[in-house]
Every structure is written in structure tokens, then in C-alpha cells.
Simulated scan of single mutants.
Amino acid sequence: MLEILGEAARRMSDDFRQAHPEIPWSDIIGQRNVIAHQYDNIELEQLWSVVTSDIATLITQLEPLISSLTPEIK
């Protein structure tokens, strides 16, 4: 799931990401890159924190933005 989330974040336009600096785009994309390419460098405590805490906050931040996306992005 985190890998898919990171890939989706990477595919958002630069304009959209810049318009929403409250979303930690670089962190999301960076985490995806570690999971996909540097699995031997995954810090399990950090990953657990993302799953148990950060995801809930991120969902709260992203839900209002979904309606502003064009249909092909949704």
C-alpha cells in the first residue's frame, strides 16, 4: 500500500504538489523509493510509525483534495 501511495504522489503534477505544501510529498515519494529499491535499508520502527500514525493524518489531509482532481486522476 505504501509503495502505491508513493507512486501516486510521484505522479501528481508539480503544480498540484506545490499548491498543497501541507502534504509531505517528498517524504511519501522517498519512502516509496526505499520500499521499492532499498528494502535492506527499511527502518521497521519508522515504517510502523507511518502505518499506525501518519497514514490517518494523511488521509484527513487528502480527502478534501480528492474532489478537486480531474476524473482521469481519481
Rank of each mutant, 00 (worst) to 15 (best):
L2H: 06
L2N: 14
L2R: 07
E3D: 08
I4C: 03
L5Q: 11
A8F: 04
A8R: 13
A9W: 07
R10T: 10
R10S: 15
M12N: 06
M12W: 04
M12D: 01
M12H: 06
M12R: 15
S13T: 15
S13G: 11
D15M: 04
R17A: 12
R17Q: 15
R17P: 06
Q18W: 00
A19P: 00
H20L: 08
H20F: 05
H20G: 03
P21K: 13
P21D: 15
E22Y: 01
E22D: 15
S26I: 12
D27L: 07
D27E: 11
I28R: 08
I29K: 00
G30A: 02
R32D: 09
R32L: 03
V34I: 15
I35M: 14
A36C: 13
A36D: 05
Q38D: 14
Q38V: 02
Y39S: 08
D40N: 09
I42W: 00
E43Q: 08
Q46H: 10
L47V: 13
W48V: 07
S49Y: 12
S49A: 12
S49W: 11
V50H: 03
T52F: 06
T52L: 12
S53E: 13
D54F: 05
I55R: 02
T57Y: 04
L58N: 10
I59S: 11
T60L: 09
T60K: 11
Q61V: 04
Q61P: 02
Q61M: 15
L62Q: 09
E63L: 14
S67Y: 01
S68V: 03
S68L: 09
S68G: 06
T70M: 05
P71L: 01
E72P: 04
E72C: 03
E72F: 04
I73A: 10
K74W: 00
